[in-house]
Nucleic acid binder design. Structure first.
Lengths: 304, 304
DNA sequence: CGCTTGGTGAAAGTAAGTTTCACCCGTGGC
DNA sequence: GCCACGGGTGAAACTTACTTTCACCAAGCG
């Protein structure tokens, strides 16, 4: 077992629910069953006794206790009251729209739009809620003082990486993004102390990205991970871990909400860096805006 | 005192606290001591065990139970969670965060995060609100039946275009994105009836995108514009106009919220298309997910 | 193939919550 | 003044909920 009694119960400022769903994949199967019950209906869970909940999750009370500890609570009663508080706080159900779940088969476009917007917006909000400003601050500082910034990401996270690269570039920071692993590895090998490497992976298990980040780290660069799962492998190779809070229910692997959550974090870092030197950033932004001016057609009016 | 053991356990509409203090005088002395403790600090009471609370009120557990029954609860645990919920709710209001507007110069990271998240989330929500489901439906239909789909976008909108392309590709639609205008023009020239061209431009004035979209239109393709400004030039060359609702206050040209709004629309279209043929889409998604499986490292857990 | 190791639930143990009951004490009748 | 009487109360018995311990199992590893 060798279980340390407390697991950095540290910082779960944003909702407890968000926190739980974040480390859902790092839980054991039986604990995951419990977690899913809790996340799907916190209020109901708060009303249940431990035996009840254990039965519902098809497991033993012992596992429920273990789950409580895993998410940083002292025991079941504490979880219960936190859950109740949480549930009360979220005024949510504006109307009985399809909240968490998948899009129902027979849904029409209006429903789809409402559901997606709701989930997307929530991902953004919840991500912001649980973001640790202190860690952000450190990352912003690292980026601000970096000689060079490498950003890695594959697949859908690649777009985010690319977006971040462009943003930093526009305010005069030397940033790179590599769509190709080999190139990325090469680049990482050239990093050194004072440089920053940022790896983006929703699942936190993308081996390419982890590998590159690791390379960067051994070269002395400060490494940052952006993932939805704080205990995923990518966290092992990162000096700083920033987490998103996307549930990604609809069309698994479709990577809809996760992107938005990632982009929100990127926005925060970007603005944070820009705010460190407003004058310079603004000037750079204006210059870049001006540069594309000739590619804009006249007045934005027309068609009375 | 002649007190009937239960007091219309029914349903106390206003706060539980209010309810309790209301019938405080009708309680027995010992129960009153308990009640006062509870009313003065509900949150603290919720954290206490029954023995604890009894001691604090200088009475026995039995009296606390009686008190619970007197105020309409089943027992102590129920009172506890109700109390926790109540306490949580009344902390909520003081949430006067920096709403609209730009980031103030002296802002710290926490403020920046809150502001960005708020604006981002609002962009998403407002975009969804004003999206016309009918137009979406038509676009979805066009995409679903298209022989080929070209997606154009420059700068920040290029990422969105690229993201959309990848999404459609993943569910088996033949879609292209061109980072280069020349290539895009060439491609547009080869479009024909039954094909779809989608142009993305936040301002709606990006001449490159407009030009390409125009080309596509003259070749007989159905053209779709995604822009924040419905009366911008791009609308003139589009058969269907979809609009976002981003205000883009912070760091103009930084393109933070606009991207998210665009992506939300992309998500809607994507899910709409996927929903038209769930089986096929799901199968395709699973296949693609499986394809990258070997690039994922093992279990998402660690740190005993 | 045996050894570890993490996940698990049964059972034992402890603490929390609930019920019972006898006692106290003030009240009112005899 | 004595004696029911009855609500209010806490001690103790009791029940249920929660927690810990431990042995087992299955998977991974040398």
């Amino acid at each position: 077992m060798a279980k340390s009694p407390k697991i950095s119960a540290s910082h779960e400022p944003g909702g407890l629910i968000v926190h739980i769903s974040g480390l859902l994949p790092s839980l054991s199967p039986a604990e995951q069953r419990v977690a899913r019950l809790v996340v799907s209906d916190p209020a109901a869970a708060a009303r249940r006794t431990i035996t009840d909940l254990a039965t519902a999750a098809e497991t033993s009370e012992a596992t429920v206790i273990r789950f409580c500890r895993s998410v940083g609570m002292d025991g079941y009663p504490q979880l219960r009251i936190r859950l109740a508080a949480e549930a009360a706080r979220r005024i949510e159900p504006p109307d009985a729209r399809v909240v968490g779940g998948d899009i129902p088969p027979g849904a029409d476009l209006a429903q789809i739009i409402a559901t997606i917007a709701f989930n997307d917006a929530r991902a953004v909000e919840e991500t912001a809620e649980q973001l640790d400003p202190a860690v952000c601050e450190q990352v912003v500082e690292a980026i601000s003082g970096a000689g060079r910034i490498d950003i890695y990401g594959a697949g859908a996270s690649g777009f985010v990486a690319s977006d971040f690269q462009q943003k930093l570039h526009r305010i005069g920071r030397i940033a790179f993004y590599f769509p190709d692993v080999h190139t990325a590895l090469t680049s990482a090998a050239l990093l050194g102390r004072g440089d920053v490497a940022i790896g983006i992976s929703h699942t936190g298990t993308t081996s390419d990205v982890i590998e590159v980040l690791e390379q960067a780290r051994t070269r002395g660069a400060a490494t940052v991970a952006l993932t939805n799962f704080p205990r995923s492998p990518i966290a092992d190779v990162a000096d700083f871990v920033l987490t998103t809070a996307a549930r990604e229910t609809t069309y698994r692997s479709g990577a809809t909400a996760s992107r938005l959550a990632q982009l929100t974090v990127v926005d925060c870092l970007f603005v944070g860096v820009a705010a460190r030197n407003r004058a310079r950033a603004r000037k750079a932004l204006e210059a870049t805006a001006e540069a594309v001016q000739s590619h804009r057609v006249g007045a934005n009016r027309r068609r009375a």
